[in-house]
């Protein structure tokens, strides 16, 4: 069956975030980058014992703060959202916080990117033609976290998932999973393996949005499992540009 791209729904930024949280396991220490990754924290259960790490030096904070009485301006995430403390939370200085990262004590990091290559190289700190860049903690995270997941909108901008980076590389060979607006792609030994697709998409459709050769997962491609009736998780067909 042939359908055109603009007749299909795709995941919204929030939809991508929710799909990423499905990969989080109890007990894991996870750092969320700025942008779509930050949205993941809104979809974690309050009692989930996933320790979120904010690189300026807060580990295991609670849910987002609501209202003036709960907001303590000294307790925010690295993305500047006020949060509440929770039992077991620890604060530390920047050096200790990055020791945790560089020492390999983070189970996962979720990053945004300008570009990712099929080899798992990531570019997210320097725009072409810019006189300056901003690397922040992304390089430490990308080099040293045990698993690097990238949230990537393939439909909204071209050339985001490529064979070779054309932008300045943040870190080589580090990304193992892309959660995109059309599905989940694992990067395995230099190959792009499609694990899940948004309902209505097939491998041929997906192939049209990237130059990288896509391979089906050996055990088949699953449908991405998100509630179809939660509108905020989806982009309407007209919003998805291929």
């Amino acid at each position: 069956m042939t359908t055109t791209v603009d007749q299909r729904r795709s995941l919204s930024r929030r939809g991508i975030a929710v799909r990423i949280t499905q990969d989080f396991a109890e007990g894991e220490v996870i750092n969320l980058g700025v942008g779509i990754p930050t949205l993941c924290s809104f979809y974690l259960a309050d009692d989930a014992e996933v320790l979120l790490h904010s690189e300026h030096g807060v580990l295991g904070h609670g849910r987002h703060a609501h209202g003036e009485n709960e907001v303590d301006p000294s307790l925010v995430t690295a993305g500047m959202q006020p949060v509440v403390p929770r039992p077991g939370m620890v604060v530390m200085d920047h050096s200790e916080s990055f020791a945790l990262i560089r020492g390999g004590h983070l189970d996962k990091t979720v990053l945004g990117a300008f570009q990712v290559s099929v080899h798992g190289d990531i570019a997210n700190f320097w725009l072409p033609g810019a006189p300056a860049g901003s690397v922040g903690g992304a390089q430490d995270l990308a080099f040293c976290a045990k698993k690097v997941i990238v949230a990537l909108q393939l439909l909204s901008r071209p050339n985001r998932f490529v064979n070779e980076l054309s932008m300045e590389m943040t870190a080589p060979h580090c990304v193992s999973r892309l959660v995109t607006d059309i599905g989940v792609i694992d990067l395995v030994d230099g190959q792009a393996v499609v694990r899940e697709l948004v309902p209505g998409w097939n491998l041929d459709d997906a192939q049209q949005v990237t130059e990288v050769e896509l391979h089906p997962a050996p055990d088949g491609i699953a449908e991405i499992n998100l509630p179809a009736d939660q509108d905020e998780l989806w982009n309407a067909p007209s919003e998805a540009k291929a």
């Binding site: 050096s95 700190f125 690397v135």
Partner: peptide
């Protein structure tokens, strides 16, 4: 403000990651 001045060559930037800056 920093990149604007860097573009004009008025300010030099040494970019480094946070962990390395700390150390």
């Amino acid at each position: 403000p920093l990149e604007a001045r860097a573009r004009k060559g008025e300010v030099e930037i040494e970019l480094i990651g946070q962990g390395s800056l700390c150390e």
